[in-house]
């Protein structure tokens, strides 16, 4: 005896189920879309790195990548920083094609924004970073260096291969291929050893 009430409640259960599932799938889809867009349209730069190997709580083995541009002199910091606010780090390429930090600020400098397909002549890129620099900025202390995190510090490798990768790069010099978006967000595209691309991630 399936009355009108019952069929309505059955319908509402399915409506709720469909809503929940589609919202969650849409969230996942959006995260993927956002990344793919950044990786394909972002400005590509190559950074020098120093890796070490730990293991992520949730996501398996990974190699921690630390960059030359991760440690910044506080003297380069311009203006004040709000608590917990992101940092915008302007980096410039020198004659040896190495990227160095030239400016750190609390706002994005539009003129130095990376553009998709920009000619390498534009030798500056702004990268968004997180750091606890606002603590020293608040006290006016400009002696401690700033440790900036760009969100490209973890490179995930198949279980057990983290050490292998680390050994591989132990003697040789490793570089990271990074895509930087219009808002300064960075994403890892792959790793280079001795100028050769050893890992390149497919978009999906």
């Amino acid at each position: 005896m399936m009355g009108a009430d019952q069929s309505r409640s059955v319908r509402s259960v399915w409506t709720a189920i469909a809503t929940v599932a589609s919202v969650q799938l849409a969230v996942l889809g959006y995260i993927v879309f956002d990344r793919v867009r950044l990786l394909s349209a972002g400005r590509e730069i190559v950074l020098d790195v120093v890796p070490v190997d730990p293991r992520s709580l949730f996501r398996g083995d990974y190699v921690i990548l630390s960059y030359d541009i991760s440690r910044i002199s506080s003297a380069l910091l311009e203006g004040k920083l709000a608590k917990g606010a992101p940092l915008f780090v302007t980096i410039a390429q020198d004659a040896a094609d190495k990227w160095n930090v030239v400016r750190v600020a609390a706002e994005l400098v539009v003129s130095a924004m990376p553009e998709a397909g920009t000619a390498p002549a534009a030798k500056q890129v702004v990268m968004k970073a997180r750091s606890d620099a606002w603590r020293s900025a608040a006290t006016g202390d400009r002696t401690e260096p700033i440790f900036a995190r760009y969100g490209i510090e973890s490179y995930f490798v198949p279980e057990g291969q983290g050490l292998e990768l680390e050994q591989l790069v132990g003697e040789k010099k490793i570089k990271a291929v990074v895509a930087v978006g219009r808002d300064g967000t960075a994403a890892l595209k792959g790793l280079m050893v001795d100028g050769k691309l050893v890992y390149r991630e497919p978009l999906i």
Partner: peptide, 22 residues
């Protein structure tokens, strides 16, 4: 289980794209 799989999927995406934000 659906909720748990949603979480696992976020982790997978983070791993796929080496996302290391916050």
């Amino acid at each position: 289980l659906g909720v748990a799989l949603f979480g696992a999927s976020i982790m997978l995406i983070a791993q796929m794209y080496h996302m290391d934000g916050n």
